[in-house]
Computed example of a mutant assay.
Amino acid sequence: MSVTPLWRRVVAEGIGTGLLVTVVVGSGIAAAKLSPDDVGLQLLENAFAIALGLAVLILMIGPVSGAHFNPVVSAVDWWLGRRTGTGLTARDLGAYIPAQIIGAVLGAVLANLMYGEAAVSWSTTERTAPHLWLGEVVATAGLIVLIFALAASGRAAVAPAAVGAYIGSAYWFTSSTSFANPAVTIGRAFSDTFAGIAPGSLPGFVIAQIAGAAAGVGVLAVLYPQAGRAADDVVTSHTETGASK
């Protein structure tokens, strides 16, 4: 078994993250149009589409890159796997994160254009409050623990359904509606629609997500101390026979 070439994994991460943001923003626009007078129903429609879309994208992209779609997932994968020679290398990490961010921005642009909006419309939705940051810490920590617990216990095959279900439910049980992803957070700033976040709110959310990732690593150290050995299976296994570098 050998690892898929880095360039192919980077392209996959960009496409996957971009399509994820397209699902997030596009379903948010659709929800606002379909249920203009019911914010709760809009959130339900948005969350339902994201849960299903994320599961499908993991199934589609996972065999190529692992389907991280998330800088903090990639960073934790590198951090936990570095001592055992598994997971992302520092070089991989340096390529994954820019691809995820660029993909996220392009995904928001695509969603805007599909619905006849301006390609870029900076969001005016302010999301700046301590309780929202706490929500992001909880959402991100839970996501990290889930993903690496599945890999460490040999259940990475169920990650598409489990991660989709977690994000869908976290939309409702966290005060922040579970962004839990710096790249997706940045992408959502490029659309002044239902799922948007004002650029000025980005630093607080991203810092909270990093803190949540660190908290997740702490929980993993207690519950799954050997999680780093399974870093090659995060989010799903992404090795192939006969791949060429």
Rank of each mutant, 00 (worst) to 15 (best):
A75H: 02
D77S: 15
W78A: 05
W78I: 03
L80E: 07
G81F: 05
R82H: 13
R83Q: 11
T84M: 04
G85P: 04
T86K: 14
T86D: 04
G87D: 06
G87A: 07
L88R: 02
L88K: 01
T89A: 01
R91F: 13
D92K: 03
G94S: 06
A95Y: 11
Y96I: 05
I97G: 07
I97D: 08
I97Y: 01
P98Q: 08
A99T: 02
Q100D: 03
Q100A: 04
Q100S: 08
I101K: 09
V105S: 05
V105T: 05
L106W: 12
A108I: 00
A108V: 00
A108H: 00
V109H: 03
L110I: 07
L110Q: 01
N112G: 02
L113V: 15
G116V: 00
A118C: 00
A118Y: 02
A118R: 07
A119M: 08
A119Y: 10
A119Q: 04
V120A: 05
S121N: 14
S121V: 02
W122A: 14
W122S: 04
W122C: 01
S123W: 14
T124A: 15
E126A: 15
E126Y: 13
R127A: 13
R127I: 06
T128A: 09
A129L: 07
A129Q: 14
A129P: 10
H131D: 12
H131W: 14
L132Y: 15
L132K: 04
W133S: 12
W133K: 04
L134R: 08
E136M: 03
V137D: 03
V138Y: 01
G142Q: 11
L143V: 11
L143D: 04
I144M: 13
I144R: 10
I147A: 08
F148Q: 05
A151E: 03
A151F: 00
A152C: 11
S153R: 15
A157Y: 04
A157N: 09
V158A: 14
A159Y: 13
A159R: 02
P160R: 02
P160H: 08
A161M: 15
A162V: 06
G164W: 08
G164D: 09
I167C: 09
I167Y: 07
A170F: 09
A170E: 10
A170P: 05
Y171Q: 12
Y171M: 10
W172K: 10
F173L: 11
T174Y: 01
S176N: 06
S178L: 03
F179P: 05
N181Y: 06
A183N: 07
A183Y: 03
V184E: 03
I186P: 02
G187P: 10
A189D: 11
F190K: 14
S191N: 09
S191I: 06
F194R: 15
G196E: 10
G196I: 13
I197E: 11
A198W: 05
